[in-house]
């Protein structure tokens, strides 16, 4: 039916085509249609599942003893185990970024912009981005593989047999952990980078601690902080939810596990880019 409609439209709008050219164009249009339908259906189902999990996060029954235990374990795996690597990356990154920023400020002689540059660039952009990349690389892939393995091993159906709700027991703790860990680790990253900034600024400009903090506080706005917290929460929500959905999509075959993880990670990175762009649009509007 769609094929006929496309053909009719092309025939009505354009002069007669050679048959081969016509069929290539029709199949191209069909392909675009198929991709659009598939993408919109996938986005639609992801958002509808996201809404279900989000609403369940506010229900008291989601926080029984078993779910709380999962939440504690997840926080340990995501936020505590990663700390040595995370702090190392934060220190290296902090030294590099601060070195560049302070050299630039010194060169152009615009010390008034120091606070704005650090708050706008480091706290608002760099910290959430580096944090989400580290968590996605480590925890999202682990969650994706874990859920896919549970699906293949029929462990998810075991939970259902014992009347254990998958959203309450498996998904809410993981998603909540994603949100909490993102906000906590991003704040920690900012703190480390800004502390290194204090050290560099006292060495290059001889700035005192009070003056440095005062400069930062004057450059910080409440709206910006709310946006960055929302951004971190959105990152945390989607980089845990998407791997869960893709893990659930695994079939009963072992070979579906790497496929599920691969697809999941691609979608996680797409989500990171989309959230980053949306938050920038909101911020600059």
């Amino acid at each position: 039916m769609i094929r006929v409609t496309h053909l009719m439209i092309i025939r009505t709008l354009s002069p007669p085509f050679p048959t081969v050219c016509e069929s290539i164009m029709i199949s191209a249009i069909e392909q675009i249609g198929r991709v659009t339908l598939r993408t919109s259906s996938s986005v639609g189902s992801t958002l509808s599942f996201a809404a279900r999990v989000f609403l369940r996060m506010f229900e008291r029954r989601s926080y029984n003893s078993a779910s709380r235990m999962v939440l504690i374990n997840q926080i340990y795996f995501t936020s505590v185990q990663i700390l040595p690597l995370f702090l190392f990356v934060a220190v290296i990154f902090g030294a590099m970024v601060n070195g560049m920023v302070f050299q630039l400020i010194k060169k152009i002689g615009q010390t008034d912009y120091l606070g704005r540059l650090l708050m706008g660039f480091v706290v608002m952009e760099i910290s959430p981005f580096v944090t989400v990349l580290l968590i996605a690389l480590r925890s999202s892939s682990a969650i994706n593989a874990e859920i896919a393995v549970m699906k293949v091993n029929r462990e998810l159906s075991t939970l259902e047999i014992f009347n254990i709700d998958l959203i309450d027991y498996l998904f809410v703790p993981r998603v909540l952990n994603g949100i909490l860990s993102m906000v906590f680790l991003s704040s920690l990253f900012s703190l480390v980078v800004l502390s290194i900034g204090l050290f560099v600024s006292s060495v290059i400009f001889g700035t005192s601690v009070d003056a440095y903090i005062d400069t930062l506080l004057r450059s910080a706005s409440l709206l910006d902080m709310i946006i960055v917290w929302f951004k971190c929460a959105a990152f945390g929500f989607f980089i845990t939810l998407i791997p869960i959905i893709l893990g659930m999509n695994a079939s009963q075959e072992l070979t579906s596990i790497p496929v599920a993880v691969l697809n999941g990670m691609v979608k996680v990175f797409s989500a990171i880019i989309i959230i980053e762009v949306l938050s920038s649009i909101v911020r600059f509007i």
């Binding site: 029984n64 003893s65 078993a66 779910s67 235990m69 874990e146 393995v149 549970m150 091993n153 029929r154 462990e155 159906s157 075991t158 939970l159 047999i161 014992f162 009347n163 254990i164 309450d168 027991y169």
Partner: peptide, 24 residues
């Protein structure tokens, strides 16, 4: 068809039912 959850130790597998349903 209802295997034990492989990332939990035996005691957690058994306790899970009461922890979840009776909030033990």
């Amino acid at each position: 068809e209802a295997p034990l959850i492989s990332n939990l130790p035996v005691w957690s597998n058994i306790a899970l039912i009461r922890q979840y349903h009776q909030n033990m």
